[in-house]
Write a protein that binds this DNA or RNA. Structure first.
Lengths: 342, 342
DNA sequence: ATAATAGTGTCTATAAGACAATATGCA
DNA sequence: TGCATATTGTCTTATAGACACTATTAT
């Protein structure tokens, strides 16, 4: 019932049933922030936007973009949208195409070693955006393949590191961090399936740009194990990212939000690439195609076709745009879930 | 990225890239509360736990149980569990059987007219509990049929009321509120479907107790229109309850949490009663029965059978307990959703 | 005895998955 | 030309819903 009780003992009113006296300063102040898990696809692989911390704790580590809520002057949603705009440096036009939803709140004691902080996490789906540059505060920002993240339980940076009691960060970790994300020409253009552990080392000979985009979706057995999954996140952000990925995977099942990762017009193959990147497993091309077209309101045809066919030949794919459905009926269920999280 | 930026202008460090200076008191303090949407079934109808406000704003109105998070001394989940225990007056044994999950956070400016408050809402599913009595602070608490609530958009109490500038509450509203929820022998024992507008007037001739519980689930066309849906909630709690109901309806589809509304052992018919009460529509008895038994891990048989058959005859139903599944595969989808929220 | 009710059987419509076939267009 | 590939077709299996039927038990 919100704010009806004092923090400690307060004088009851006449019959002692209710507390009448009230003073805002009676209540324990907690800092409230928003943090955003911004997901996008780059070269067919799922990436998350991270910023480098310039101050303790976790100085030099990577963290989710976010910031304080302006108390009483903006809603949580507005705060998240504002931070997203600031951190990505995008204008309103671009942000219109970004899906933003609340993910959940995190308030464990000690999650920020300095003071009690509750963060309201948001999840964003964005089309491939111009390269991330620092926001208003000019902090370093980068798109990081989610396969490069350590997201398991208990994989946050140790409390010791958080406190900054030792050095700010061990040298090897700092080095690995910058080597891992400071470059532009990240992941190869072969598709990277998120699960399980499909992140591959990025071959240095891979140049930037590299013509043909996304599209390709040939199954690729989990070949090389890490050096993926090595990047540690500050605070409890690994947990938040993991929760965001879970949410994203679930949302693709029963909403058409996969289209939020694509441009205004897209092909069914590109759409399938979104599903494959986020679910981390290949889908049957023919069945997926028919399924998408059979779900009412998922996509609608533009008369047009893609400028060219597949990378190595084939007919030009037809172009579609997002339909008017908010929910998919019937849903596109992930394969294999019976053997799953029973 | 949590707490890395000052509230206003702060001195940059050497290269001006990052803010180094930090003082907790720089940051805007926001009160953080938890509010809980506790759902249970009483006489086959879905009820929500509400407490009466004893102080302004919204004095005399009903609100969700909740309270302040003890900054830095408990997690959000712990705060919710603590408030739930306090407000229901239940011991740990009973609370073990209660499902509690985070629902979402609400922080619109002005949602509490006194100061900025962010509330982290929780959703609880509880079996039929002993009568709600006030918690530690002895505020009045009651189980209210959800059909008696006004949950539509823009149906919160007006800002005028919130401010308490006029009287605390108009006389007629106060009267209606107490008449609606102060009694124990609420809803009739015929099932009440939540949607659409199936709340029925409670016939005064219906005595308390009334022997046979739940069970019955004959479809009942929405016969009498209101006087249901008349109860207004304080703050933005109508919105929170509506979101909680949406979440509950969705959760029944793909989790076995319907069993959290029942005792340790239950019959398939009772389980169907949960679905019907929360989804607000009758389900086909035979198909539901077969479906539940076919989903692996949903329920497991105890060898026993119920003490007696249906209220007016019929074989004794077999008893089941909750299985070990966390998710239902395949899910139990709500009927009619194609025509739904496209 | 009668009627209500728990549980099962059967049939149909829909949807998902495996696989094949066709046609298109880049190299 | 040759091969990759977008799209469609076919078949099988799984699932959901409508309906009928049997057996049991409260009144």
């Amino acid at each position: 019932m919100d704010a009806q009780r004092g923090s400690g003992t307060a004088a009851g009113d006449g019959d002692g049933e209710f507390l009448a006296a009230y003073d805002p300063r009676d209540f324990p102040a907690i800092a409230v922030t928003v943090d955003i898990v911004v997901l996008t696809l780059r070269q067919g692989a799922l990436h998350v936007l991270l910023v480098e911390r310039g101050a303790r704790p976790f100085k030099g580590a990577w963290a989710l973009p976010g910031g304080f809520v302006r108390a009483g002057r903006e809603s949580l949603d507005e705060a998240a949208a504002r931070e997203l705009a600031e951190e990505t440096g995008l204008d309103a036009t671009h942000l219109e195409r970004v899906h933003l939803e609340q993910l959940g709140s995190y308030g464990d004691p000690g999650r920020d070693p300095r003071m009690p902080v509750v963060t309201v996490a948001y999840l964003a789906f964005a089309p491939d955006l111009p390269e991330a540059r620092g926001g208003s505060d000019a902090s370093a920002a980068a798109w990081v393949p989610v396969g490069d993240l350590r997201l398991g339980a208990g994989e946050e940076l140790s409390k010791d590191l958080a406190e900054g009691l030792s050095a700010d960060l061990p040298a090897d970790l700092s080095a690995e961090l910058s080597a891992d994300v400071s470059t532009d020409f990240a992941t190869s253009d072969t598709p990277a399936f998120t699960e399980p552990d499909a992140a591959r080392p990025r071959p240095p000979e891979q140049g930037p740009g590299h013509g043909t985009n996304g599209g390709d979706s040939v199954p690729r057995p989990a070949d090389t194990q890490p050096p993926g999954r090595s990047l540690l996140l500050a605070f409890d952000h690994a947990r938040i990212v993991a929760d965001g990925l879970d949410r994203a995977r679930a949302k693709l099942e029963y909403t058409p939000l996969a289209t939020a990762f694509l441009g205004e017009e897209f092909t069914i193959v590109e759409l399938r690439g979104v599903y494959e990147a986020i679910w981390g497993s290949p889908l049957h091309a023919g069945n997926f195609h028919r399924k998408v077209l059979s779900v009412p309101g998922f996509v609608e045809s533009t008369g047009a076709t893609a400028a060219r066919g597949g990378a190595r030949g084939g007919p030009r794919a037809r172009l579609y745009r997002a339909g008017d459905a908010r929910l998919l009926h019937p849903a596109l269920l992930r394969p294999d879930r019976e053997a799953g999280v029973r």
